[in-house]
């Protein structure tokens, strides 16, 4: 082995170490959410003089203590059983149950006392409904803008595209007033309708569909297919990859949207997850265990969603970035 090889190996190792450290740092907050949600609150076993709250303790416990305590109690119980001390074994058995109960206590409280399931459902159906609607109407308009020639096309296209960079806040107040004019305040339509105005999807679909050969459409026309049929049988199947990308980004956008829901919704039964989590935190007396449990419940669907559709995320981002 020559020195060059060794250098390269060391270099590669260094790169891995750096990256793993960075990945560790970036995933730490998420870990901390999960860890705190499973942390043992006020608990006392046979060796402790008084109960300890491991959630709010200094120094903080870096992992859910319940795991270790469960193993400890289990070993104690085995030992007690071996020595035939039934009473002691029963005590440790009870403690094992207590550890389990207290570890997952946050979830029980969360589901029983808060509306989190409702918020979860609201977020889910609003995001899905909006995503479907956006994908449909943006594919329709993207198709027309890519493949048809008609008066006003240029103006319409540029009018839509030029709003892409305008931050949400600029239209916050007038959109609110519009929502009020249409009497949508404190309804889910107030979240869904304004999202359907977003420009990004039209741009994405048009760019994608520009690349589809005209001959396909022409051939279908000669066969006497109606426009609607052409759209469904030719355009939609071809546009699927872009539709998937658009759908995924719309879903994430809707799922995470925060500023707008906290303005137009107030009934706690109508809130979406992020807005609901804010009310959890605002209700000052909630423990950090409960807050982090709420955060866990809110984070998991998105993590699963990401892991399932990872390649579309990558594809979508690359599409936006590479095409300069």
């Amino acid at each position: 082995m020559n020195s060059n090889d060794v250098n390269q190996k060391i270099g590669k190792l260094l790169i891995y170490v750096t990256l793993i450290f960075m990945a560790f740092v970036s995933l730490l907050p998420l870990y901390w959410v999960f860890s705190t949600s499973l942390q043992l609150p006020s608990y006392q076993n046979e060796t402790m003089e008084e109960p300890i709250n491991y959630v709010e303790s200094a120094p903080p416990k870096l992992y859910p203590v319940g795991i270790k305590e469960y193993i400890h109690q289990w070993q104690e119980r085995e030992a007690a059983e071996d020595s035939g001390d039934k009473e002691d074994a029963a005590y440790h058995d009870e403690k094992m149950d207590e550890v389990i109960t207290k570890t997952f206590e946050g979830f029980v409280v969360l589901f029983e006392r808060t509306k989190i399931l409702k918020w979860l459902f609201n977020s889910l159906y609003i995001s899905i409904l909006t995503t479907l609607a956006i994908v449909l109407i943006d594919t329709m308009s993207g198709y027309v803008l890519a493949k048809k020639n008609f008066p006003g096309k240029k103006i319409i296209f540029w009018a839509i595209i030029s709003t892409m960079m305008i931050p949400e806040q600029v239209t916050l107040v007038p959109t609110f007033m519009m929502v009020q004019e249409l009497q949508l305040f404190n309804t889910h339509w107030a979240l869904i309708f304004p999202s359907l105005a977003l420009a990004f999807g039209v741009f994405l679909m048009r760019q994608f569909l520009l690349a589809i050969p005209n001959e396909l459409i022409e051939a279908a026309k000669i066969d006497g297919a109606s426009e609607w049929k052409i759209f469904w049988t030719i355009i939609v199947p071809l546009a699927k990859p872009a539709m998937a990308v658009l759908g995924i980004f719309t879903f994430v956008l809707m799922w995470n949207s925060f500023l707008w829901p906290i303005i137009v919704l107030n009934d706690e039964n109508l809130l979406t997850l992020p807005a609901g989590l804010k009310t959890l935190q605002d209700a000052n007396l909630a423990s950090f265990k409960l807050l982090m449990t709420g955060a866990t419940v809110a984070a998991i669907p998105m993590i699963v969603f990401f892991l399932l559709f990872q390649r579309y995320f990558v594809k979508g981002l690359s599409m936006g970035g590479v095409k300069q």
Partner: peptide
């Protein structure tokens, strides 16, 4: 009955008034 958490009550009432709702 619209169930509104206390922490949100003031803000949301103001918003509702401005929204004429």
């Amino acid at each position: 009955l619209v169930k509104t958490p206390w922490a949100e009550m003031n803000d949301k009432l103001s918003v509702a008034i401005a929204g004429r709702a």
